[in-house]
Design a protein around this nucleic acid. Sequence first.
DNA 1: TCTTGACCTTCCCATCATGGCAAGCCCCAT
DNA 2: ATGGGGCTTGCCATGATGGGAAGGTCAAGA
Lengths: 145, 145
Amino acid sequence: MNIGEAAKGSGVSAKMIRYYEETGLIPPAARTEAGYRIYSDQDVHMLRFIRRARDLGFSVEGIRELLGLWRDRDRQSADVKRLALAHVAELRLKIRELEDMATTLETLAACCHGNDRPDCPILSELEAPTALPTKKGAFRKLSGF
Amino acid sequence: MNIGEAAKGSGVSAKMIRYYEETGLIPPAARTEAGYRIYSDQDVHMLRFIRRARDLGFSVEGIRELLGLWRDRDRQSADVKRLALAHVAELRLKIRELEDMATTLETLAACCHGNDRPDCPILSELEAPTALPTKKGAFRKLSGF
DNA sequence: TCTTGACCTTCCCATCATGGCAAGCCCCAT
DNA sequence: ATGGGGCTTGCCATGATGGGAAGGTCAAGA
């Protein structure tokens, strides 16, 4: 099948399929004489795997490792589990960062009258940070957000 | 003071100060005859405001709006509050997405023996998604993660 | 006064995953 | 055979940030 059909069947856009090929995440597809990429059901299966891993927040590099294990019949499930739990730890870290931001802002917003007067504790806090009743400060360096 | 000192004093890197100027988030700094940017304590004050807003996860566009209100003596605190709460909603949405990913993965990992055998429910799930006891599927389209 | 090192300037490139657009070729159905 | 839709490659853009190069400037010490 052509790339468009593979895209529809896998949920990965044609653009991304080419990108994954270009960056070596997936092997180069076979081509017709005219240069069209051709995909098998097996390929679509792999693309769906990738798509699903993206949905779970894995980076392309993480997926590269997952794919390696997936293809390895002699893999040890411990390796897969380690990868998954490492990713969970990253997710939880980011969640904590976002949570801190959200609670800080909610606390401030709760103190804001929200009327037609200009005085606002949110702006005051941005202007001159006060230690707030938030467990820990929100650090953005690791967040990528 | 020079850009380096302003950077140290505000917590915003010199690189980013130039970027903010270039994109119009902050007005062009005055210059010495030699072309060096010069900053006042007021400027550093504003940069700290920006830095703090970034720490709370606001995008540069969001900060643009916040700065507008900050500078506007006739602002209505309701506008600030609305901005803040809209951002909180975005944060909570993203948190929910990440949370869904994390719990899904944790559930799968809990089912994985994590030994030297190759069979692994994590890979099986990636291969052929099963409806899991997760409240909602994790959609990545809005996540930017 | 000269030198040196730290600072500043601009400009370009890279990140990460994704989308958009354009020019040009190909294939199938009518 | 022609038209419309699909395919190809290549370039550009995103958002916020860092890195580095090439070259100008400043201040302190010899």
